[in-house]
Write a protein that binds this DNA or RNA. Structure first.
Lengths: 202, 202
DNA sequence: GACGGTATTTTACAAATGATAAATAATGAG
DNA sequence: CTCATTATTTATCATTTGTAAAATACCGTC
């Protein structure tokens, strides 16, 4: 296999944010990376757009180039925000991706967002053809797994107050960008309780 | 690559529980499965044995052939059980496996257990050599991810009472096999609260 | 800079959960 | 079978968190 001297279309236009994003997961040999990038396209949606829906099997995954999103689940009485995604994060219905089944979550854009879009089907084709991409997909799942495990641990082991402070420390920008009602929901408490927590710190 | 006519040592002795366990993750071609099985050995430990330790980087993963285990984390004041494993489940320190770092959990055997043992190092070697095993590893991570996500969702969306009933329905055997103090910890409540929940149902 | 709408905080009260200790039940060793 | 040990349930009271509603702060638009 030889590497093309010319650059791919996508990477010609501007300083590329996609390469570091792919490399962060697993460093691919150039040919493998090119064959992956061939299937990725850039899309933009406005604030308020619903990117993923709980009631459908999603066909695409997205990497966030710019913007912020939240995932939430509808319950009989209310709605629970359980994830925020920002630049560099992956927006994905794991249930769709792994099991080809409906997921739990709606994902709403909290800003105008620029996203990299990739068809799950195309990705799965590549997994069967290229061992480097198969390992890239493995590392991707493993890294998402660690993140999910850490969220579970955080939730199980720490009080809402501790978790708020953890968030404040690890991701102060988030609290600026997102309204507190969503943060409270994310922490598993009411907005009133969150207000009490915040009041204590002053 | 050709398939050996003779069976591997391990599979000669008794009706094998390992094959279905590996196949459940991802159906491997026979040569790939054989090269994986070559690295798996069977071990037994008594009730009370600590299989994984939070303060060390683990070198092995285990599949449970027979028995039941719990994972728990030590906190300043008490200890929190956050996972139970039974026949067919994988016992693994994800932090060790994915990031080569210490994990959160001790894993204690609640019974005498028979386990399949596999060195993380050997597995990772295989991932680089065989695309089928790389995809097996990918599916393994993906399935663990789905399970972890479901635990997170369950914890985030449902009350302890709902989660107890969910457990009662999905895994009634567990409640027979494990003392209620561990179950209460797992549900994120005190044993007193769990007693109250159980009392309501009568 | 005044207005209307939205987000956040505060208050008062009700409900749920936790801590502690005591009572009962189950289990296992001799 | 009995005793000792451990597990589970019950009771009481203190603390935390939730609900509902009102008060305040913030933001964008005209």
């Amino acid at each position: 296999m030889t590497i093309q001297g010319k650059m791919d279309d996508a990477s010609a236009s501007q300083p590329d944010l996609l390469d570091p994003l792919l490399d962060k997961i697993y460093l691919l040999p150039a040919p493998s990376r090119l064959s992956l990038k061939r299937y990725i396209r850039e899309v933009s949606y406005p604030k308020g757009h619903i990117l993923l829906r709980a009631d459908k099997i999603e066909t695409d995954i997205y990497f966030i180039k710019k913007g912020i999103v939240r995932a939430y689940a509808q319950t009989p009485d209310n709605e629970i925000t359980f994830w925020f995604g920002q630049e560099g994060d992956t927006v994905i219905s794991m249930k769709s991706y792994v099991e080809n089944q409906k997921g739990y979550e709606d994902v709403e854009l909290l800003d105008n967002c620029d996203l990299y879009q990739l068809k799950i089907h195309d990705l799965q084709q590549l997994f069967g053809q290229d061992i480097h991409l198969a390992n890239w997909g493995r590392k991707f799942a493993e890294q998402e797994l660690i993140k999910t495990e850490e969220r579970l641990i955080s939730r199980q082991f720490r009080t809402a107050s501790q978790r708020y402070n953890e968030l404040l420390q690890k991701n102060p920008a988030l609290i600026q960008r997102v309204q507190l009602g969503y943060i409270a929901s994310y922490l598993g408490i009411t907005q009133v309780s969150l207000s009490r927590i915040r009041a204590e710190l002053k």
